[in-house]
Write a protein that binds this DNA or RNA. Structure first.
Length: 548
DNA sequence: AAATCCCGCCAAATG
DNA sequence: CATTTGGCGGGATTT
């Protein structure tokens, strides 16, 4: 049902992009829907002289409005019928963000757990009229926020925002334990330094301050917070492939949750997310790719109204960034460490890891049947067991109705938690269980159970080695100059969504400070997120609300 | 020119 | 082996 096209946007399936491959991801494509202007997709081509990519077709269609397209147009006409050229399809209309919006519109924020919140990939793809691939993108980040969970092969289960608060709470905590705040500062500083380094030493060297080798462990793991998803076998969850999107998304969110002005610039985020080997590898490309992903993630986060696009302006110019506009308060996280399981697993992984994971040679031992099998089964078993205790699905955390989660973006001076210099400290300080901190040794994928407080069911955090920063403490303070030097510009206060601009301090532009002086000055602010004063107020920030 | 980011190839992961 | 997932990056679009 549903003609597919919603609104007025003439979502014309201009020729299905399908390439030569006749069997690729095709599947549910060919929307036979399309009432009037149809045109299935010209199957053939290949040898054709026309390198017409779908894009060029679009371009062509657009140009059709102007007088000069002839032959090509003609050819196209033979295959398709045009939509009202008046409103030509633009890239915007095909954005992930919009797609995500459409997707979200199909489900309630707070679904009734007793109902069939099943999501069928094919249906969605078909109904939204998009390629499957795109749905995966959305699902992946939604999954990272536990708004959905894979229930079976082509299936996902919708959870909406029911678990969002809890998830964010965990992400924030984990982010704090990893001292992401500090890392960000460090990177900002580094970038800043490089900035007006009015000269030389380009190359790709890293700094003198390199942590280097960090063996492997390093408490800078990667993790993927997993949800108690029904006791289905589903499992899914692990696989070291769980790198990227899912994990990246969680990390990205974490960055927001631990940074004080809840603003994260793309480059900084990308740098941190790159983690792992940052040394001699081709950073350039890697960075670019990372940024692309970040945009993808950001788009859905934006659809979720969790972040907004802004710009931070430093002396050097504007940088794209995003600001958190989602919930600011979350339920406390509780959990318990499962040493036993944890350790056993850890050792296994270590073996594997040490066995063939040398920096350069990224032997994807992902393939190693035995190891993987083992790890998997263990995890599966564990998860199976986990879902048993406590009250299953029901008894939502109650707390606040998901809806009410959105408070004013205005972040008041609420010093977010005191900083712990060592994860251990923080851990100790934490009430009951709380997230487990995995000291060195354990490297890849270390499942940790986080028995959730009432009713929730346990959460598991999968840790995975990530990058440098072997010894957290003992690190020269990162300095926060970078932050200080930033300026958020507030452009046209109003925000499209009617929300009012969060904070937007006048900003005294930091221009008065000599860059060089600043640069050389680095030495202040010790801790990260809440060193009494120091960077506290970074009023010289100017945020550029992106009008969209 | 820089910022965005769509598109879809094609390799893992799965069944 | 067929499919399902989903890295990844070229290059088109927007800003």
């Amino acid at each position: 049902s549903n003609p597919g096209i919603n609104e007025q946007s003439p979502q014309v399936p201009v020729n299905t992009p399908k390439k030569v491959s006749g069997q690729r991801a095709v599947s549910a494509e060919n929307r036979p829907t399309m009432g009037p202007l149809t045109t299935p997709k010209k199957g053939r081509e290949v040898g054709s002289v026309d390198p017409w990519t779908p894009t060029s077709n679009l371009k062509m269609l657009i140009s059709a409005a102007s007088p000069d397209i002839r032959n090509r147009e003609k050819e196209l006409q033979e295959h398709f019928s045009y939509p009202p050229l008046s409103k030509m399809i633009s890239r915007k209309e095909k954005s992930l963000g919009l797609l995500c919006h459409k997707f979200l519109a199909r489900y309630p924020d707070c679904p009734n757990p007793a109902l069939n919140n099943d999501i069928c990939l094919d249906d969605v793809a078909t109904e939204l009229n998009v390629e499957r691939r795109r749905i995966y993108d959305i699902m992946n980040v939604l999954e990272s926020l536990h708004m959905v969970s894979r229930s079976a092969k082509n299936r996902y289960t919708w959870h909406g925002r029911t678990k969002l608060a809890q998830t964010l709470a965990i992400l924030k905590q984990v982010g704090e334990e990893h001292r992401y705040g500090q890392q960000m500062q460090q990177i900002r500083q580094r970038l800043l330094d490089k900035e007006f380094d009015f000269d030389e030493e380009e190359k790709e060297n890293k700094e003198m301050v390199v942590d280097l080798e960090s063996g492997e462990q390093g408490q800078r793991e990667l993790f993927f917070v997993e949800l108690p998803g029904v006791e289905f076998k589903a499992a899914s969850v692990n696989s070291r492939k769980d790198k990227s999107l899912r994990v990246m998304s969680q990390k990205f969110v974490m960055l927001f949750l631990v940074s004080n002005p809840r603003v994260v610039s793309l480059d900084v985020a990308a740098k941190i997310l790159i983690g792992e080997d940052q040394g001699a590898d081709q950073d350039k490309n890697k960075f670019k790719t990372k940024v692309r992903r970040l945009y993808d993630i950001a788009n859905v986060l934006r659809s979720l109204k969790l972040i907004e696009k802004v710009h931070v302006t430093e002396e050097r110019g504007r940088k794209p960034a995003f600001e958190w506009v989602g919930p600011e308060e979350f339920p406390q996280v509780k959990g318990i460490t499962r040493k036993s399981v944890l350790e056993s697993r850890g050792s296994v992984d270590n073996c594997a890891k040490n066995l063939f994971s040398s920096p350069g040679a990224k032997r994807s031992f992902t393939r190693h049947p035995s190891l993987i099998k083992l790890a998997k089964s263990i995890q599966d078993d564990r998860r199976k067991i986990n879902s048993a205790p406590s009250s299953p699905p029901t008894s939502s955390i109650s707390k606040e109705p998901p809806q009410a989660l959105f408070l004013t973006p205005t972040h008041e001076p609420r010093a977010n938690t005191t900083v712990h210099l060592t994860p251990h400290t923080s851990l100790a300080a934490l009430p009951a269980g709380s997230v487990a901190y995995i000291p060195a040794q354990c490297s890849s994928l270390i499942p940790v159970l986080l028995p959730q407080q009432r009713g929730g069911g346990p959460y598991a955090v999968y840790l995975q080695p990530s990058s440098p920063r072997p010894n957290p403490l003992a690190r020269p303070q990162p300095t926060s100059l970078a932050v200080r030097s930033m300026t958020f510009e507030d452009k046209t206060g109003q925000s499209p969504t009617g929300q009012f601009a969060p904070k937007s301090q006048p900003a005294s532009r930091a221009s008065d400070v000599s860059p060089l002086a600043l640069k050389r000055l680095r030495s202040d602010s010790a801790s990260e997120s809440s060193p009494s004063k120091a960077k506290r107020a970074d009023p010289n920030f100017k945020v550029n609300k992106h009008p969209e």
